[in-house]
Design a protein around this nucleic acid. Structure first.
Length: 522
RNA sequence: GGGGGUGUAGCUCAGUGGUAGAGCACCUGCCUUUUAAGCAGGGUGUCGAUGGUUCGAUCCCAUCCACCCUCACCA
C-alpha cells in the first residue's frame, strides 16, 4: 500500500486483499455516497415510453418531432468527452447510444453520471438525433440511476468466452453475448410453435405427476427422494408415458405434455440429468398416422423458426421438405451391408454380424444382433431426416407386434443429423402382455439391471379397463432446439445446465460483500 | 469410465526454475457530436488445490478438483 495516496488510506485500507473486492468496494462506496445525498441506488420503478428497438424503428419520425421519450437499460459502454458523455445502454430489445452534456443536464446530474459504472442500469429521458458520425443517439435531458451494479461486467469487447463461466454465471453470459439471448428466444419460439401446432390439431395439453411413487415408461435409473408426510420414498419421473396412457384409457383421445424428466445417468454433449421431452398419445391411430403427423409438425416448426425448410447444422444442410425418407430397419441394413437378416435365425444372424466385425456377449437374441448391426452400419449415415421403422420385438418392449411380422414391432425412430429426434409406437394395449413384460423387467431388475422397469400394478389395472388402439411418441426438445439453433452441446440450449460443485477455494462474492458491509459500519 | 487438452488480475490473454506482464475494466487529471474515443499518470494477483524435487516452484514431478474435446451407454 503506498503511503502517498490519501484516498487509499481513507477508504480502502480495510478492503479485502483481492482486486475484485477492491473494485466492488469502490462501487459500494459510491452507493453509500449516493445515500448521503438522499439518492436511492435501487429505486422502485421507471416509466418507459419506448424500448430501444421501438425508438430505432420509429427513429426518423421521433427525431424530426423531437419527441421526448424515456428508455431504460444497462450501461454497456461509456466514454467521457470533456463536459459531455457518450454511452450505450442495452435493454432486452437492443442497444442505443446516449449523449449527455453538462449544459443540458446540469452539474449535479453530470457529476452523478460521472460516477456510473459499466453494468449500472439507468433510465433516460430525452429526444433522438443523429451524431456527426451518423449514429442514432438519445440526447439525454435527465436520467435516473435505477440499479447500481457492484460486480464488474466482463470485458466490453472480448466478452465472456470461458465456457465454464458462461454456464455457471449464465446471467453474465446473457448480458454480454447477444447471440445467447437469441438462442434461448428461439427455444421459446420452438416450443410455442409446437404448442400452436398441437393445439390446432385438437391435442389437449395436460399435466401429470413429476413426483411419483413408481417410476416408469422408460429404461433409466431414477432420482429418488423422500416424502416425509407419508414417510415413503418417491421418484422423479423418467417419462410420462404411463400416466398419459391412463388418460387415453379415461377417454381423452389426443393428449400431450411438455415433460420435464429426470434420469440419474451421465452428463455429456447430448445428456443432462434434467431434460425436456414432449410426449403425445393419439387414440384410434397407429404409428404410420403418427409419423405423418410428426412430419407435418416438424415441417411447420422449422418453417416458423427459419422461414425455410433447409437449415444448417454443423457441416450439413438439413432439408425438412416432406416427405421424409421412410425405411425399415432391416431394409436399411441391407442397403448398407448387402445382408438380409430378415429370415435368419439368431445363430445365423450372429455369424453374419461377426463377418462384418460386430460381436459381443450382449447379443443374446436376434433383435439385439439386428440393433447392433444397425447402430454400427446405418445410424452414422443418417444425416437427412429419416424414419427408421419396424424394430425387432426384443428391443421394443412397449410396442405392439407388427401386424404382418411377429418378429417386428410397429415402431419408428426419426433420425436427423445423427440425432434421434423421436421414438414412437403403435402402443401395446394388451394388459396380459403388458403384465408379462413387466415381469420380465422385474427379473432383469433383480439380476442387477438398474435401468429395468418396475411393475406398476395400477397401470396394469388401468389397461385392463381397455385402452383403445393408440399411437404414442416422445421426442427430446433439447435436441430439437440444438438442431434448429445449430448448437453442438445440450448445455448451449439449457439456461442452467447441471454443473459439478466448484472446489477451487476462491472467495465467494457474498464474503466480499460481507466484508464491505462491515467496513461501512466503521 | 477411457483417451487428449485447458486452468495466470473482474474479463481476454502473454510469460518465466530466482516473489509476474499486456489490453480492457477501475482510480486521478485534460478534452461539449465521440465510438474498440484519445492523451497523461496510478494499483491490481493464494499463477486451480495439495504434496514432492530444489537453496529457491507459478514453471519440473505426483495426486486431486473443475471445465472443454473425444470414445462407449441412456433422450
Amino acid at each position: 500500500m503506498t503511503q502517498d495516496n490519501k484516498k487509499n488510506d481513507q477508504s480502502y485500507s480495510e478492503a479485502p486483499q483481492l482486486p475484485l473486492a477492491e473494485l466492488m468496494k469502490i462501487r459500494a462506496d459510491k452507493v453509500r455516497e449516493l445515500r448521503q445525498k438522499n439518492i436511492n441506488a435501487y429505486p422502485y420503478r421507471y416509466e418507459r415510453t419506448h424500448v430501444v428497438q421501438q425508438a430505432l424503428e420509429n427513429f426518423d419520425q421521433l427525431a424530426e418531432k423531437e419527441t421526448v421519450i424515456r428508455m431504460a437499460g444497462r450501461i454497456m459502454l461509456k466514454r467521457k468527452m470533456g463536459k459531455s458523455f457518450f454511452a450505450h445502454i442495452q435493454d432486452s430489445s437492443g442497444q442505443i447510444q446516449i449523449y449527455l452534456k453538462l449544459d443540458v443536464v446540469g452539474q449535479e446530474q453530470f457529476d452523478l453520471f460521472n460516477t456510473l459504472d459499466l453494468g449500472d442500469i439507468i433510465g433516460c429521458e430525452g429526444s433522438l438525433f443523429v451524431t456527426k458520425t451518423g449514429e442514432r443517439t438519445l440526447r439525454v435531458s435527465t436520467f435516473e440511476l435505477l440499479t447500481k451494479a457492484l460486480h464488474p461486467l466482463p470485458d466490453k469487447h472480448a466478452g465472456l468466452t470461458d465456457k465454464e463461466q458462461r454456464y455457471r454465471r449464465r446471467y453474465a453470459d446473457l448480458i454480454v453475448n447477444p447471440e445467447v439471448r437469441e438462442t434461448f428466444v428461439k427455444r421459446t419460439k420452438i416450443i410455442k410453435a409446437i404448442r400452436d401446432f398441437l393445439d390446432n390439431e385438437g391435442f389437449l395439453e395436460v399435466e401429470t405427476p413429476i413426483l411419483q411413487p413408481i417410476y416408469g415408461g422408460g429404461n433409466a435409473r431414477p432420482f429418488q427422494t423422500h416424502y416425509m408426510r407419508l414417510d415413503r420414498d418417491m421418484y422423479l419421473r423418467i417419462a410420462d408415458e404411463l400416466y398419459l396412457k391412463r388418460l387415453i384409457i379415461g377417454g381423452y383421445e389426443k393428449v400431450w405434455e411438455y415433460c420435464k424428466d429426470f434420469r440419474n445417468e451421465g452428463m455429456d454433449r447430448l445428456h443432462n440429468p434434467e431434460f425436456s421431452m414432449i410426449e403425445m398419445y393419439w387414440a384410434y391411430a397407429d404409428y404410420k398416422d403418427l409419423a405423418a403427423l410428426f412430419e407435418r409438425l416438424l415441417r411447420d416448426v422449422v418453417h416458423t423458426i427459419h422461414g425455410t425448410y433447409k437449415i444448417p447444422y454443423g457441416d450439413h444442410e438439413i432439408d425438412f421438405e416432406p416427405p421424409f425418407r421412410w425405411v425399415t430397419m432391416l431394409g436399411s441394413i441391407k442397403e448398407q451391408t448387402g445382408i438380409d437378416f430378415s429370415e435368419m435365425s439368431c445363430e445365423e444372424a450372429k455369424k453374419a454380424a461377426a463377418d462384418i466385425d460386430i460381436e459381443g456377449e450382449e447379443l443374446i437374441n436376434w433383435g439385439k444382433v439386428i440393433a447392433a448391426v444397425w447402430e454400427a452400419k446405418v445410424e452414422p449415415t443418417l444425416i437427412q431426416p429419416t424414419f427408421i421403422v419396424d424394430f425387432p420385438v426384443e428391443i421394443s418392449p412397449l410396442a405392439k407386434k407388427h401386424r404382418d411380422n411377429p418378429r417386428l414391432t410397429e415402431r419408428f425412430e426419426l433420425f436427423i443429423a445423427n440425432l434421434e429426434m423421436g421414438n414412437a409406437f403403435s402402443e401395446l394395449n394388451d394388459p396380459v402382455d403388458q403384465l408379462e413384460r413387466f415381469r420380465q423387467q422385474g427379473k432383469a431388475l433383480e439380476a442387477g439391471d438398474e435401468e429395468a422397469q418396475i411393475l406398476d400394478d395400477d397401470f396394469v389395472t388401468a389397461l385392463s379397463y381397455g385402452m383403445p388402439p393408440t399411437a404414442g411418441i416422445g421426442f427430446g426438445i433439447d435436441r430439437l432446439v440444438m438442431l434448429l439453433t445449430n448448437q453442438h452441446s445440450i448445455r448451449d440450449v439449457l439456461f442452467f445446465p447441471a454443473m459439478k460443485e466448484l472446489g477451487d477455494g476462491s472467495v465467494p462474492v457474498s464474503q466480499i460483500l460481507s466484508k464491505i458491509c462491515e467496513d461501512k459500519e466503521l
